[in-house]
C-alpha cells in the first residue's frame, strides 16, 4: 500500500506541484490549505509524513507543528517544513518545535523525494 503524506500550504499551486511530485513517485497525498485545515484532517487516519509551509493564515506552520506534537496519535509523525524562509532564526524555531527537516522553496523534486524517503514512517 502506498504511503500517505499530508501537504499543508496556503498556495493551491504549491500544493498541486508538491502533490504531483509525490504522486509520480508513488505516494498518496492529502491536501490542507493552512494549519487549521490540516488539524481537521488528523482524524485518526495514518500519515507517514507531513510537508508543511511556514507562513499561512489562521494557523501558521510552526503553530501547526506544536499542535501536532501535542497530539498523542500524531506526535511521532515526521514533519518537513517547506518554505521560502531561509533565515537561520526561523530554521532554529522549526527545529525547536519539532520539525525534522527544513526545505527552502523552490524545491528540487529529487531532493524533496530523498528527504521524504529518508524520514517517512515505515
Amino acid at each position: 500500500m502506498a504511503k500517505s503524506i499530508l501537504i499543508i500550504d496556503d498556495s493551491a499551486s504549491m500544493r498541486q506541484v508538491v502533490a504531483m511530485t509525490l504522486n509520480n513517485a508513488g505516494y498518496d497525498t492529502v491536501e490542507a490549505c493552512d494549519g487549521e485545515d490540516a488539524l481537521g484532517k488528523l482524524d485518526g487516519r495514518k500519515f507517514h509524513l507531513m510537508i508543511c509551509d511556514v507562513n499561512m493564515p489562521r494557523l501558521d506552520g510552526l503553530g501547526f507543528v506544536r499542535a501536532v506534537k501535542d497530539n498523542p496519535q500524531y506526535k511521532f509523525t515526521p514533519i518537513v517544513m517547506l518554505t521560502t524562509e531561509a533565515g537561520d532564526d526561523k530554521k532554529a524555531q522549526g527545529q525547536a518545535v519539532g520539525a525534522r527537516a527544513w526545505v527552502v522553496k523552490p524545491f528540487q523534486p529529487p531532493q524533496l523525494l530523498a528527504a521524504v524517503a529518508k524520514l517517512a514512517l515505515p
Partner: peptide, 16 residues
C-alpha cells in the same frame, strides 16, 4: 512537465 511545474513555484514566491 515535472520541471515546468517546479519552475512554476516562482508564483508562490512572487505572491509572498
Amino acid at each position: 512537465v515535472a520541471e515546468v511545474l517546479v519552475a512554476l513555484q516562482f508564483q508562490d514566491r512572487t505572491s509572498q
